[in-house]
Amino acid sequence: EDGFEGIKLGDDPIGRAYVEFQRHLLALNQRGVILAINSKNNFDDAIEIIRKHPNMILKEDNFASFRINWNDKVVNMKEIAEELNIGLDSIVFFDDDPINRDYMRSAFPQVLTIELSDSSSYSQILKSMNDFQVAKITNEDIKRSKMYLDQRKRTELQKQVGNLEDFLKQLNISAKIKKADQYTIPRISQLTLKTNQFNLTTRRYQEEDIRKFVSDDKKIVECAQIKDKFGDNGITGVYIVNKENKQEWLIDTFLLSCRVMGRGIEEALLGQIIERAKMEGIKKVKAQYIKTMKNKPAENFLSDFGFIRNGDIWVFETTKSIKKPEHLVIS
């Protein structure tokens, strides 16, 4: 609303404070923190500032989602979460208007709404937050911003195509299975610790746990790197299987990152486990679904695939036919 010349970025104390705040946001983005804009403004005016202002640190490609309009910010926030396929409890909200902050806290208490004072304190508030601190940054963290930009392109294609089956065929999805090793163990552990939505058991494992599993010849620990025509999603699937005896396997962990859910990848990975079991003479593959507050997306997965419930355990007889999505390649 202030116009190009009225934007406070640069030479005066207020402008320098905003530039410094952007620098810290950029550093977080480069470490894998996703940025989005939720702003009441004219889109064309705001995007011109982002693209052309000489003191603008953050660029258009640093943002995974834009809601620049005159809509309710709570409505915008819900749309951002849906577009990025993340929970509201994964979102941190910065807004300089106390009314907007109070409204967001009231509507979405699960969103972490930060209390702000004057602009000179923004950077210090950001640096003091523990919410963005992680013990180790993986390759997927570094690439995450690019991955979400690729996701925007997928969303645009899906809107153009309309039909889900045709959309999935045009994506040219491939899944490469990798054994757990020194390079993949950090990411495997990270996914077990962070993945909530499509996670059958939500068992949390540190890197040390994964290393012990890898050294156990009665366990299978593998992950899946997912690619398509728009880019590399990185390692976004993990499964851990216990070889219980010569006739039965039990799936201890089966999870998929929310950003690749719903494309048939989950069915392809589970089918690959069952095919391998069948080749090794296994008669039954067993699994569990342990319900949590967040893993409802996985609730019907086993039954839809063809598993039969027996008490707390789901069982698949390997003599049965296996679902194989035709629109992707697994290797």
Rank of each mutant, 00 (worst) to 15 (best):
T236C: 12
H53M: 08
L157F: 05
I185M: 01
L328W: 11
I265E: 15
M104D: 10
I173A: 14
T195D: 14
S121L: 10
V92S: 03
I274E: 04
D209N: 12
P186L: 08
S215T: 02
A224V: 15
F94N: 06
N196T: 14
I173H: 12
I14T: 10
K8R: 09
F4T: 03
I86M: 06
D95Y: 10
N310V: 10
K283G: 01
I114Q: 08
Q160P: 00
N85E: 15
V19Q: 03
G311I: 05
S121R: 04
G281D: 05
N139S: 11
I99W: 02
I99R: 12
S331D: 15
Y18G: 00
G32E: 05
L193Y: 02
K78R: 13
E275G: 01
L157W: 00
F213Q: 00
D95A: 09
F108P: 04
R263E: 15
Q133N: 15
G234I: 09
L25H: 07
D209P: 00
G3Y: 08
A36L: 04
G87T: 09
K284C: 00
E222A: 11
E156G: 00
P325I: 10
I68P: 02
V241Q: 04
Q247S: 11
K59A: 02
E165A: 09
L149M: 07
D11Q: 07
Q158N: 13
M147Y: 06
L168I: 09
I50F: 08
I47Y: 06
F316K: 10
L328I: 11
I240G: 04
R144I: 12
K194Q: 15
T155C: 01
I57C: 07
T113Y: 13
K284R: 13
R187P: 04
A107R: 14
V315D: 10
H53Q: 09
F108M: 13
G3M: 05
I177S: 04
F301H: 11
I68H: 02
T201S: 06
K143I: 04
I7N: 03
S65K: 01
A277Q: 00
K283A: 10
V33M: 03
E165T: 09
D252C: 01
M129C: 12
T319S: 12
R101H: 07
F43A: 03
L171N: 11
T236A: 14
R259F: 14
A81F: 11
A46N: 02
Y103L: 11
P186T: 09
A180T: 00
E266P: 05
K59G: 03
N245T: 01
I34K: 02
E115G: 07
N310T: 07
I99D: 07
N172F: 08
E1R: 12
I220S: 02
G162T: 04
N242D: 14
E156Y: 06
Y289Q: 04
A277C: 05
I265V: 15
N310S: 12
I185G: 02
G264F: 07
D11A: 03
Q110N: 13
